[in-house]
Design a protein around this nucleic acid. Structure first.
Lengths: 129, 129
DNA sequence: ATATGTACCATTACAACACATGGTACATAT
DNA sequence: ATATGTACCATGTGTTGTAATGGTACATAT
């Protein structure tokens, strides 16, 4: 697995890492069950902060692309191949695109939409940790 | 029509103005057809920048609460009473609240939702002025 | 001891955006 | 001339959120 992080790239570092892991899985360079470097080790290799790597791993696990087994390390998820194709963000984008289009059609200003969005995102419903 | 703008109020000035005009209409202090002060004049009276007043007027006209007749001035819209009840922002908020809730339920991070939103808002489809 | 993922404390830098301000200019019609 | 709404140029301020960094600590198990 060769991962290259470009500090100049406007794409966030953790995001580059997520993408490259998914790519490696789709290319077959990584297979289900394969072990991944530990957060700390990978941070050293890529000259990143461990937090940054941890963030990438957290997102990858949420998408069931990798699996963390506590002290045993991190491994490629059994369904990684399928799950690294499914793009949660794409689904979110599509939904949002439609919604925003409806707003604009209704005459709402981009500014108004942004403000409404900001309010919604800050509304912590009923006790979220 | 008595309008009072509070500079200390965290609510934006143009927004205070919009609200107060709508209120005046619902209270009957303003009736359909009534003339409104010119942008420049109202700016002087309220000690606001003309741009700020213009912004409020623009939004009010978009909601068909007032009507601008060019050089003839600005007047309360015939359907102002009904239209000042309809709250476009409330509708936008509701829709967005549902949409965002669905995203969160799907496991999306708030950060991801924000990023997706940012992308959607910056996508200027096909030649917008 | 050593290593795993994870959780908290925190700060810094940076970008995007809203709000409000100022000035100037235009076509419109009185 | 005077006034209307509107459009463009622009700047400054403050807020918000992201991204990335650092340090410390924990329970887990080898």
């Amino acid at each position: 697995m060769e991962i290259v992080i470009d500090i100049e790239d406007p794409v966030p570092l953790f995001s580059q890492l997520v993408t490259q892991v998914k790519d490696a899985i789709q290319n077959g360079k990584l297979s289900p069950g394969d072990p991944l470097p530990s957060i700390r080790q990978l941070a050293i290799d890529l000259e990143l902060n461990a937090k940054t790597v941890a963030k990438a791993y957290r997102l990858l696990e949420r998408d069931s692309v990798i699996q963390t087994r506590g002290y045993r390390g991190t491994f490629v998820h059994p369904d990684a191949r399928a799950n690294s194709t499914v793009d949660l963000n794409a689904w979110v984008m599509d939904k949002l695109t439609d919604t925003v289009a409806a707003f604009r059609e209704a005459g709402a200003t981009d500014s108004e939409i942004r403000i409404a969005f900001g309010k919604v995102m800050n509304e912590r419903i009923g006790g979220e940790r």
